[in-house]
Design a protein around this nucleic acid. Structure first.
Length: 275
DNA sequence: CGTTACCTGAAA
DNA sequence: TTTCAGGTAACG
């Protein structure tokens, strides 16, 4: 569910609360008697052993991943996939549905990992790039440029939307912000990347930054499941221009927003404004 | 490259 | 009953 703005919102909220804290315990929830396979690439007992007693030195984001840097030198990496949430709670707070794992902290709080669809995961690795090495540059960082976007699109026949969704090209764009950026840039999501003019690519470059920043400022988009670290919804769903607005009039021209499949993903666009 | 699988629940 | 879902890995 969460894309770059949603994950960044969680990171910003959690950072001042967890940096300097020590993880005192870890447990995996049981689902009809069986532990949920939320810990990746490592058995659960080793994971519990290694995180227990570790202090959190920093909390960073890479694409849609959260990275907790531990004083042991290890990195705890979290991906929320479609329906994951990382909730900052007290043990006495009401239970959260779909709880998969809990980290207890030395100040009495706990971090609860809840995930309806069980796609999310936790990794404990020597270096976080063991998990994130295939990711492209951060679209809001120094490493992303107009030239880099042009290189990603040049000579490609894949739809431009599929290219900007490819995490190996740019890290952090998901279905909401891809549709919103393409609307902002006035580009039909189905157009082959290689067909875009230099001008269109420049527009898209600006639009990606604009919609991601708007998402962060709005604390993310809650269309269905997304909740921040306090269990609250974001606000970006109130400001989207095309995403899930199928059959509603375009705010620019009044033409009805259409939905098509692009690269297997639902895609929303204005057939008149986007060419 | 596009399609399918992973999993659960809400909406059509 | 069927379709759809803020993602990605593994297919062919």
């Amino acid at each position: 569910m969460p894309e770059l703005p949603e994950v960044e919102t969680i990171r910003r909220d959690l950072e001042p609360r967890v940096v300097g804290r020590t993880i005192t315990a870890f447990r995996v929830a049981e689902d009809s008697g069986k532990p949920v396979p939320v810990v990746k690439r490592m058995d659960e007992a080793s994971f519990r052993e290694a995180v227990s007693g570790a202090s959190i030195r920093f909390l960073e984001r890479r694409g849609k991943y959260l990275v907790f840097g531990l004083d042991s030198g290890l990195s705890l990496v979290v991906h929320l996939r479609m329906t994951g949430a990382l909730l900052y709670r007290r043990p006495t707070d009401p239970p959260d549905r779909y709880l998969r794992a809990v980290f207890r902290l030395d100040d009495g709080h706990e971090l609860r990992f809840a995930d309806l669809r069980k796609f999310g995961g936790l990794w404990l690795v020597e270096s976080f790039d063991e998990v994130t090495s295939a990711l492209g540059p951060e679209p809001l960082g120094e490493g992303f440029s107009r030239e880099l976007l042009e290189a990603a699109l040049k000579d490609r026949k894949a739809p431009v939307k599929s290219i900007i969704l490819d995490q190996r090209r740019i890290a952090g764009i998901g279905n909401i912000y891809a549709d919103e950026a393409l609307f902002e840039a006035g580009i039909d999501p189905r157009r082959p990347g290689g067909d875009l003019s230099v001008e269109a690519m420049l527009k898209l470059f600006g639009a990606i930054g604009k919609v991601l920043l708007a998402g962060v400022e709005s604390r993310g988009a809650s269309f269905r499941d997304y909740l921040d670290a306090d269990g609250n919804t974001g606000n970006m769903q109130m400001y989207v221009r095309v995403f899930r607005r199928t059959g509603k009039p375009c705010y620019n021209c009044g033409t009805l927003i259409e939905r098509v499949k692009v690269g297997g993903r639902s895609t929303h666009f204005c057939p008149s404004c986007q060419r």
